[in-house]
Design a binder for these strands. Structure first.
Length: 600
RNA sequence: GCCCCUGUAGCUCAAUGGAUAGAGCACCGGACUUCUAAUCCGGCGGUUCCGCGUUCGAGUCGCGGCAGGGGCGCCA
């Protein structure tokens, strides 16, 4: 927003340096001045000049000399247009901005662009974000929710930043685990399924947990139990073989149970506001996967050790590395069946060739880092230039205070349970704070705020940190939380409702309060935050931004009167500022996948 | 053995190599006849795991440790 201005400032700075007999040929770095009620940019360039002098042999104290230079420059520099004051402070040269002019510029910009405020220009590159991909026949727990929320926010960010964006999901709908569940359902529970999408999905997930224990030997099993488990194990493997051979009965059984899971998934995703563009089902990728192995062998990238061993790629050796880093990857079992890596390679090829993807982002938990590093290196060896724009967005686990969640052991916190609890808690608070809310509005707010709180608690932590799930932290409604941000939006809405029409224009030709300047300052940083969060793949930056903005609005709200301002021109300007704040809050929340309520 | 991630206030976490390391929670004390108090103001709280190095300047970069977590040939 201030690039032109700062370019002029850089020229003025260099001229001023020359004026006092020194030289500085680089572009000075301009950083926002730590906020003190005036708005501006400062540069530490004088430190660099002083450091250069010290290097050339002069015996000087660099910080002291920097202060001298900054002071001299401040006297010789002509404030470039758009700035109204110059100041030297502790070696920094600070330029202060003409607050009134820029306040209008920023606010006009927001109110002209509405929902598109902060949107980047089309970049002409296609990015595919792969996320929201639990296995079928399992439960959708809070860890899956972190994945889905992170992926969705990222997709919204890159889309808004100007990338052509495809949302993709790759559910694991086949494999020994899935078939074990199908086996147990068929053997013990067929026809007993309950009604209701979530009930049925969770019931099936319960069978999965039980089925796993039925076939997994444990130390304290008696011999007869061990024999029984061995027999069961054979039955399920038999079933997988039949599935692989395309046995119509097995396929039908699998298809029916799979659909229950997919129905539940679809319901949950729609609750989260997620619309996936492309589904790649693992069961449909297996075919082509086996073909690519032949190609890799022909190209000399892979080595076929069959029948004595699998098909492998010695990645470190191919790259000429002496230390083991990418190691050796197995890309096909010795019996000729595909592995996870085989499928991912085939899928990547399809993404590049069929979907013309330039950048591919995989939102998958951190345990699979090596897997993706291997996949990306093999794609590189294979000759795909897109390989260097493949990125594994690893995120840490959501664990319980007592340890890791495990679907197989059944100690998971289900997303739906957390969601219901969130709604209950919001409802209790509404009883206390706003009991007059109509039933319709109440239902809406309970969803918006409950889900918002949960989403924010997932996005406000850096993705490579683990989250220890705790009900009170995950559903916090005070302080650094979604409801705090949503409440700022609600307060703005409330003022705007009473204000009637928002004036078409207004001049900030009065002494602005510090809180107004800070609020405008933060609004003006929105575009850069979008850009940075999108290019660094960090929704966290937007989460932090939204909080800072809400905080600035709450400060403003308490410090000044909008509707009862001292003069009409001030009232008009503040109404516009309120509207711009509301709009920016709404845009920031939208990019996090959080709704902005009109009341709460 | 090798690779990756993490280590910041009592707790949970922020901080493009820049100015006095910031928030929330918790704790203590204040502000509702006011545009919604899910808010605001004040107080309390720090050897940024340790050491060495690079730099005018390091929580941030490099090297070496320590501690915790994850991963490492036919699971996904």
């Amino acid at each position: 927003m201030f690039e032109d201005l700062l370019a002029d400032a850089s020229v003025a700075f260099r001229l001023a340096v020359e004026e006092i007999g020194l030289t500085y040929s680089e572009d000075p770095d301009w950083v926002p001045i730590p906020f003190k009620g005036k708005w501006g940019f400062g540069t530490p360039a004088c430190f660099q000049i002083a450091a250069a002098e010290a290097k050339s042999g002069k015996k000087i104290n660099v910080p002291q000399r920097a202060e001298e230079i900054a002071s001299l420059v401040s006297k010789s520099i002509l404030p470039p247009s758009g700035f109204d004051a110059v100041e030297a402070e502790r070696g920094y040269l600070n330029l202060f901005i003409q607050t009134r002019t820029y306040a209008e510029h920023v606010i006009d910009n927001v109110l002209e662009n509405h929902d598109d405020f902060g949107k980047g220009k089309k970049i002409g590159e296609r990015v595919m974000v792969e996320y929201a991909q639990p296995n079928t026949h399992h439960s959708f727990h809070i860890g899956h929710a972190r994945n889905a929320m992170l992926g969705e926010s990222l997709a919204r960010l890159v889309e808004f930043a100007g990338f052509d964006t495809i949302r993709a999901s790759y559910p694991g709908d086949i494999g020994l685990g899935v078939i074990t569940c199908v086996w147990a359902y068929d053997k013990f529970y067929r026809g007993q399924e309950p009604e209701g999408i979530h009930k049925k999905g969770q019931w099936l997930a319960g069978i999965y947990t039980e089925a796993t224990s039925l076939v997994t030997p444990s130390d304290d099993d008696s011999e007869s139990t061990l024999n029984e488990k061995a027999a069961y194990d054979e039955e399920r493997r038999d079933l997988l073989k039949k599935w692989d051979d395309g046995d119509p009965q097995v396929r039908a059984l699998w298809g029916e149970t799979r659909q229950w899971s997919l129905d539940e998934l679809s319901e949950i995703l729609s609750l989260l506001g997620i619309e996936i563009d492309v589904y790649f089902y693992e069961s449909e990728v297996i075919g082509p996967a086996k073909e690519i192995v032949d190609e890799l062998i022909t190209l000399g990238i892979a080595e076929d050790e069959r029948p004595d061993g699998p098909v492998i790629v010695r990645i470190d050796e191919k790259l000429g590395l002496t230390k083991e880093k990418y190691r050796t990857a197995v890309i096909l079992r010795s019996d000729g069946t595909a592995l996870y890596l085989t499928n991912d390679l085939a899928l990547a090829k399809e993404k590049f060739e069929k979907y013309s993807v330039d950048r591919s982002i995989y939102v998958v938990d951190v345990r699979q880092s090596l897997h993706f590093q291997q996949a990306f290196k093999i794609l590189e060896l294979w000759g795909f230039p897109q390989a260097q724009y493949c990125r594994h967005l690893a995120y840490g686990f959501v664990t319980l205070p007592e340890g890791a969640m495990s679907a197989r052991r059944g100690n998971v916190v289900l997303f739906m349970d957390v969601y219901e609890e969130a709604k209950r808690r919001v409802s209790n608070i509404i009883n206390e704070k706003n009991p007059d809310l109509s039933e319709d509005q109440r239902e809406k707010v309970v969803h918006q705020v409950g889900l918002g709180a949960l989403t924010y608690s997932m996005l406000a932590v850096d993705n490579n940190k683990d989250i220890i799930f705790n009900w009170d932290d995950a559903l916090s409604f005070d302080g650094h939380s979604a409801p705090y941000i949503q409440n700022a939006h609600v307060r703005a809405m409330s003022i705007l409702r009473r204000a009637g029409d928002v004036p078409g224009g207004a001049s900030f030709n009065y002494d602005l309060d510090e809180t107004e300047i800070e609020l405008i300052d933060i609004i003006s940083r929105f575009q850069n935050t979008v850009k940075k969060a999108a290019t660094e793949y960090k929704p966290l930056l937007m989460a932090t931004y939204a909080y800072d903005l809400a905080k600035a609005f709450h400060h403003f709200y308490h410090a000044v009167r909008v509707l009862q301002a001292d003069a009409d021109n001030i009232r008009d300007a503040r109404i516009r500022l309120t509207d711009a704040s509301r709009q920016t809050l709404a845009n920031a929340l939208r990019l996090l996948g959080i709704e902005a309520p009109e009341m709460m």
